[in-house]
Design a protein around this nucleic acid. Structure first.
Length: 595
DNA sequence: CGCCTTTGACCCGCGC
DNA sequence: GCGCGGGTCAAAGGCG
């Protein structure tokens, strides 16, 4: 579909590169044709082609030595071939003064052509061939060098990504351990850093912030579908192209075009989905229900939906709408949207099924969350108890950092026709659970866990809506020490079994984010450019992402909710995150986790 | 013209 | 078997 087109084009270009290389090596004579057919690397080949003509020209008419030097270094000096571009072997004056134009164009070209044919084809042709081979070999060498450099950069990117993931987990551990002893100052640190990073200061009105986010997403949903889809596709492609996969578990289904990563790994967004899917027991259909405050008829979650029915449900004056995912022909995912009877401002969205198609990053976080929650719901005995409050379900959602209050109330119900997990995003977290783990879910964690103040320096409730990354606290709950000390025995077992999957899902969510990859790319560029590590930037890519995402999110939400934006945008944020990238992702990230 | 929403009808499962 | 409620289908109409 549309989502795969840009990626496919890019891949075609990549293939073109290979083709060029081969052509340059095997078909030096046909370089001109190759140049005519392909873009991208063509400049070299065009230069070679034109140089061939020029060179032959120079030999015949005794051109100055300077011209030959240009030929010899054409591969390093684009100006050389560019100057020759207009002339080539056609005798068209494309360089030099007017005298050269006259002499070469009008006089020497016919002479050269005639001389070549008259004076001896063997000698001239052999010399031309030698030069052609020489130039083509230079082109091939250059191409090989570029390809090798590309490969090396790719490896660096992967290495950086891996290192980041490792360091992040270590940081979580250290921070987690640290907060046990120094938590009294964390909140103040967070608030101060929140101001420092221009994050939305919604610490005092987090619930309002969430509502604004949801409303902004709902309003964004009102945009034309084509536009939204295009932008999402763009974001998806950006992420898909730039983000390496941290979780390289093999995944062979789905659209190959979207997962043709250079290293052959699958896009991270699909890993999480499949992992969750594989964890799901057959024959059971899980549902994920989300309660969120929104005035819009439907919250945006990154997918395209088609309404196929509406029905009055018993006991609720508000009709229930049925939507079907239309991003693929036979996508089984459906959702129901209905307003709460008690509070009409609360929108209850229930998702069911797994997407059978590649998703944009925003929708991927949604799908991963849904799948993770569904898998958690269906995979263990912990789901058999009605209304049981579990900690890790909240973390599954919370690791997307999209729902700041997902942890405030996550209930599992197996008494319903379908096992359902319900997330209540309408209630502000208890003071002690400000770190992200709601007291209702994991009182122990809620009190003890707090995000690292230095790394993020924000109130989690403020940061979470715009952060497509997992916030530390919910992740920290998966760390062995914390889990061993606070996780109930039953949950401990279940969580241990799913920890790997969750972590991979987390990394998938990270790497699927264009902001993260952008920051990584910027860091790599900085290093390559010799500027050293970007110390002036945030301590981690996440930091910069958080800033940009939050700023834009805050602005977007403020506009959507009546211009209540409290954090002015910065040029850095605007520049670092193109319109189609982070805002959308950040926007989607909130609602995506609702799926 | 194609896509989407609306809406009444239909199907199916469940409880009585 | 019947009624009820949830869920889905499909024709009709709207919209860009």
């Amino acid at each position: 579909m549309e989502t795969t087109k840009p990626a496919a084009e890019r891949h075609r270009h990549q293939d073109d590169h290979v083709v060029h290389e081969d052509e340059a090596q095997q078909q030096p004579e046909g370089a001109d044709d190759a140049a005519m057919e392909h873009g991208g690397v063509l400049t070299l080949q065009r230069g070679a082609t034109n140089l061939f003509g020029r060179r032959r020209h120079d030999e015949d008419d005794g051109a100055p030595r300077r011209e030959i030097r240009e030929v010899d270094f054409f591969s390093r000096d684009s100006g050389a071939w560019r100057r020759d571009d207009g002339g080539g072997g056609r005798g068209i004056p494309g360089y030099g003064g007017g005298r050269d134009d006259v002499n070469i164009g009008l006089d020497l070209l016919p002479t050269a052509t005639g001389g070549t044919t008259r004076a001896g084809d063997d000698v001239t042709a052999a010399a031309a061939n030698d030069h052609k081979m020489e130039a083509s070999s230079a082109v091939a060498a250059e191409l090989r060098r570029v390809v090798e450099e590309n490969r090396r950069l790719r490896g660096m990117l992967e290495e950086l990504t891996r290192s980041y993931g490792t360091l992040y987990q270590q940081l979580l551990q250290v921070t987690q351990h640290h907060t046990h002893h120094q938590h009294p100052d964390l909140m103040s640190n967070r608030s101060s850093l929140s101001q420092h990073t221009h994050l939305t200061p919604v610490g005092a009105s987090t619930n309002t912030g969430t509502r604004q986010l949801l409303e902004s997403r709902a309003s964004s949903m009102a945009q034309p579908h084509a536009e939204a889809a295009g932008a999402e596709d763009e974001a998806s492609d950006e992420a898909g192209e730039a983000s390496p996969s941290l979780s390289n578990a093999g995944n062979n289904d789905g659209d190959a075009k979207r997962k043709v990563f250079q290293d052959g790994t699958a896009p991270p967004r699909e890993n999480g989905e499949q992992q969750a899917s594989t964890a799901e027991l057959p024959g059971r259909k899980a549902r994920v229900s989300v309660r969120a405050r929104s005035e819009a008829p439907m919250i945006s979650d990154g997918c395209q939906w088609r309404k196929y029915g509406q029905k009055m449900a018993k006991g609720n004056p508000c009709p229930r709408a049925y939507y079907r995912c239309t991003m693929a022909v036979a996508c089984p995912v459906r959702k129901q949207v209905q307003r709460c009877a008690e509070d009409k401002s609360i929108l209850v969205t229930t998702y069911e099924g797994h997407h059978n198609h590649p998703l944009p990053p925003a929708a991927t976080t949604m799908a991963n969350t849904t799948s993770a929650a569904a898998a958690m719901l269906l995979s263990g005995p912990a789901t058999s108890r009605d209304g049981a409050l579990l900690g890790h379900p909240a973390a599954l959602f919370h690791h997307h950092a999209s729902i700041p209050y997902a942890s405030t109330m996550a209930t599992l119900s197996a008494s319903a026709p379908f096992p359902t997990i319900t997330l209540d995003l309408t209630q502000p977290p208890p003071p002690g659970a400000a770190a992200g783990i709601g007291g209702g879910l994991l009182p122990h964690h809620g009190i003890q866990q707090r995000p690292p103040p230095v790394t993020y320096g924000i109130h989690p409730a403020a940061a979470a809506p715009a952060m497509p990354f997992p916030v530390p606290s919910p992740l920290a709950m998966f760390l062995p020490p914390q889990r061993a000390t606070t996780m109930p025995a039953g949950l401990h077992q279940v969580t241990r079994q799913q920890q790997q999957s969750v972590m991979e899902t987390v990394t998938a969510a990270i790497t699927a984010d264009p902001n993260f990859t952008t920051a990584l790319a910027a860091a790599i560029s900085s290093v390559i450019a010799g500027g050293g590590p970007p110390h002036q930037a945030q301590p981690t890519p996440r930091g910069s992402n958080v800033v940009g995402a939050n700023e834009e999110e805050a602005n977007g939400g403020g506009v959507a909710s009546g211009g209540a934006a409290e954090a002015p945008p910065t040029a850095a944020a605007a520049g670092a995150h193109p319109a189609s990238g982070s805002p959308r992702l950040a926007t989607q990230s909130c609602t995506t986790s609702t799926t």
